[in-house]
Every structure is written in structure tokens, then in C-alpha cells.
Amino acid sequence: MRYYEALGLEPPRLKLDAADLQKRFYARSREWHPDRFSTRPPAEQQTALEMTALINDAFRTLRDPVGRAEYVLSEHGLEASAQRGKDVPADLLEEVLELNMALEEADGEQAARSLAQFEAALAALDGQLAGLFAAWDAAPSPDNLQPVRAALNRRKYIANLVRDARKALETARES
């Protein structure tokens, strides 16, 4: 996987240490900095530019756990856009619909309660996600990647509920 390779992180792991990632990013950026190639042949200058761009993209993607997992999933043909909703359980969709409708009618107090509830659900899911990351790192098989896809699908809905509850709370405070 190019992003992991670019930062010298092969074999790819879903769990990464943020400080180590940053250190590698700085080191690689220095190594490939275009200024250091200004007197080199054009082909080498071009390579330095391309490497710098790749290193930037790699760092931006891998430093965020969700972005990182989405990258690994897409490298395995499990990108969210290829799912066509079939990987989201019907009861979750129904629940999300109900929660959204309740939020539309909520006053400030109810919105605040919902927000706390959704934030707790998001934190719980992130805990679960960390466990799934560790499982794939220990045994990187497709069987261990599918649950990550399912958890991220769920996470997107809960993250949207958190966003919408914040908005509802703001609206309630303004009125």
C-alpha cells in the first residue's frame, strides 16, 4: 500500500502511534524536499516533487484513524461507495430515521440530552473500532476487515447524528 510504503510503515497496520507517524513524516519530508534536488537532473527533481506530494497525502490520510481505515478498506475493494447500502442493517437505518425525526421536534433540553447520548454512542463505537483494528493487525485477513467496514458504516450515521444534534441545540439556543 503506497501510503504506508511512503512513510516506511510496511506491513500496514490499522493501529498507528501518532507521535511515531509525525516523526516519520518529518524525516521523509526532509529526505525528499525539492530544495535538496535543485541542482539534480530534471528527472530526479520530478521524482522529488512526486514523492513530496505522496508523503503529504499519506500523512494526511493515515493520521486520522477513520481516514486510515477507509484507505485500507478501499485498497481491499471495500470502499464505502461500493456498498450501495447493503451493508447497513435495516434496523440501524430505522433507528437513525426515528432519532432524526425526534431531533427535528426537540427543544433545547431534549437536544442536549440527545447530543450527550450520541456522543457516548460514538465514543463506545470508537472503543469497539480500536479492538477491531487490533484484530486485523494480529491477523490481516478479509474476515477481520469486514467488521471494520460494518463499524465504519455505523459510525458515519452516529457521527451525523452528533452533528445534527449540535445543530438542533444551536437552533434551540438562538430562538
Binding site: E79, S81, R84, G85, V88, V96, L97, N100, K156, A159
Partner: peptide, 13 residues
């Protein structure tokens, strides 16, 4: 029919 698009978190009934 209730369907969803996980890439953006949309839900449609």
C-alpha cells in the same frame, strides 16, 4: 422502503 448510503450517512424512507 428504507435505504441508506454509508459513505455520507444519508437515510431515506
Amino acid at each position: 422502503g428504507i435505504v441508506g448510503a454509508p459513505e455520507c450517512g444519508d437515510v431515506m424512507k
